[in-house]
Simulated assay, not measured.
Amino acid sequence: MTGKDVWKWIVGVLDDSTILNIYRSKGLVCKGFRTNTLQDVKTYRKPINTNFFLNKVNYEKLLSWSTETTLNSSNEFQVANKETNELIDLAREHGLIIVFMKMFTENLEEEAIKLFSLLKDKNSELLHITNQSVINNKTPSQKEQDSIGSNKQDQKIKRLEEDVRKLNEQLKRRKESHKERVNEMNDNHQATLKKLNNKNQMYADLLREKNDLSKKYEVQEKEWDTERELLIKEKEVLYTQINQLSKKHEDEKEKWNKEKEDYEEFIKLLETEHEQLNKKLENKIAEDASKEIKNELTQVKSLEVMVIGKPASIQPFKNDIVQFTFLEGKDVHDYEFSLENEAYWILSYELSQKEQFLLKNNEFYSRLDEEKIIICKDFNDVKIQLKKYSKKEVEAI
């Protein structure tokens, strides 16, 4: 909420004559319609009210008018440093519009906003006014002044009666609240007293239990003293036996160490002889194995494996036992595959989707033994297959 919200309410409850006075005295211009006469104001009142807040200049002129205009109510009362209740009393006496205008004149816009917000929240009757005039067009007669004074006096009496009624209701509520509080305190006192009695009974029970435990403790303490003396005597006997066993153990340990040294020298002698025999045996086995391997290598035929999808480097495929044949991907669609190869490795990562499709539709490829076809999705699969055909594996065959 801002100061403009307060002024929108003020402008909305002013009479047509006051609105016309503002336009004439401050030279305001309304685009799209005239504001020269009272009838113009009555005809276009709603858009005229809105025109005050369309731009900063009009709003500043409205504030200037409120400062310069002579108000109907006396200007002698002050609004600065007033509490909210005091401002409401001034509004009832002089009119809420007058109070707001004086607050804006004395640079109390923030306080005016707070007062307006409070009255709106309470839906105060002070806001339910219309057609108010705040310009001093004429001096009221003595009769009018007496009538105004009488009305104000009646309003003050009604206000005092209402305050008395509220105070009586408040006093009644306080008496009821005090009575409830006293009853609650009595209930709490009874409950506390009951708890205290229960605690006293509990204390007596605990005291009795403590005395019983003290007597039991004295009896057990005597028994523990007797057991402790027996344990001390047993400990002395055990220490004597331990010393005797320790001496015997040292003698046996010394004897065992002497025997251990003799055994270690004998074992070293045996190990030396064993190493010599092992060397002779290894030389003999190596000579025999070398002769046997040479004989088997001359008998083993070279294995043929076809690699479909030639890689950029064929260095890893060099092997003394296996003869690799490479088929490039562009030739797979009409190649006449031989049935004599040991295996067919398909490097799918070297073939495009089209080449893989043409390979599967090759008539000669479809005749191959499926058990001989090995799909390698990456080079790790290729390395696994190469290990199977290593020289050591072939020798084991």
Rank of each mutant, 00 (worst) to 15 (best):
Y389S: 02
L368F: 03
N211Y: 03
G27T: 08
K152M: 01
S348Q: 05
T84Y: 06
I397S: 15
G12P: 04
D146W: 00
E273F: 00
H333C: 11
R367V: 12
E282R: 14
Y263R: 06
K166S: 10
N283H: 12
D5E: 07
N85Q: 13
K391V: 07
K156Q: 15
Y344V: 04
D378C: 08
Q132I: 09
H333W: 07
E68F: 06
V29I: 13
P47D: 08
D146Q: 01
L63M: 06
V307G: 04
K291F: 02
N278E: 13
T84H: 08
F100L: 01
L160P: 03
S124L: 11
N183C: 03
K26G: 04
I135N: 12
Q299D: 12
Q190T: 09
K26P: 05
V99P: 00
L297S: 11
Q356M: 12
N151Y: 02
K102L: 05
A286C: 11
E371G: 10
R24T: 15
F337C: 00
K268E: 14
D262G: 08
F104D: 03
K4V: 15
I321V: 05
E265Y: 01
L281I: 11
F324I: 02
E261P: 00
V382H: 01
K388S: 09
E144L: 02
F364T: 04
L207V: 08
E111G: 03
K138L: 03
E393I: 12
D146K: 02
K138A: 05
S246E: 12
Q153N: 10
K8V: 15
S64E: 14
R367E: 15
H189T: 01
D212Y: 07
T67D: 04
N183E: 11
P140A: 07
I129A: 12
K247R: 10
K301N: 13
E355Q: 09
T105N: 11
K280C: 08
A204I: 12
V13Y: 07
L171S: 14
K179A: 06
E209N: 14
V182E: 09
K387M: 10
E83T: 07
Y203H: 09
S290I: 10
E287P: 00
K354N: 10
N75L: 09
L339Y: 05
A286N: 15
K294R: 03
D378I: 01
N58A: 14
L160M: 06
L54T: 11
T18N: 13
D15W: 02
L297D: 07
L347T: 07
D163H: 11
I129W: 03
D212A: 13
Q78D: 15
Q39A: 15
Q145D: 03
E93R: 05
A80C: 03
K215Q: 14
Q142R: 08
H274A: 12
F379A: 08
I157G: 12
Q323P: 00
I97T: 00
I321E: 10
L127A: 00
M202C: 07
I285W: 07
E265R: 10
Q155A: 15
S117M: 03
K195R: 04
K166E: 15
Q153I: 01
E109T: 06
K372P: 00
D331P: 05
Q241F: 06
R45M: 04
K8H: 11
H178M: 13
E261W: 01
I242C: 01
I308V: 15
Q190Y: 09
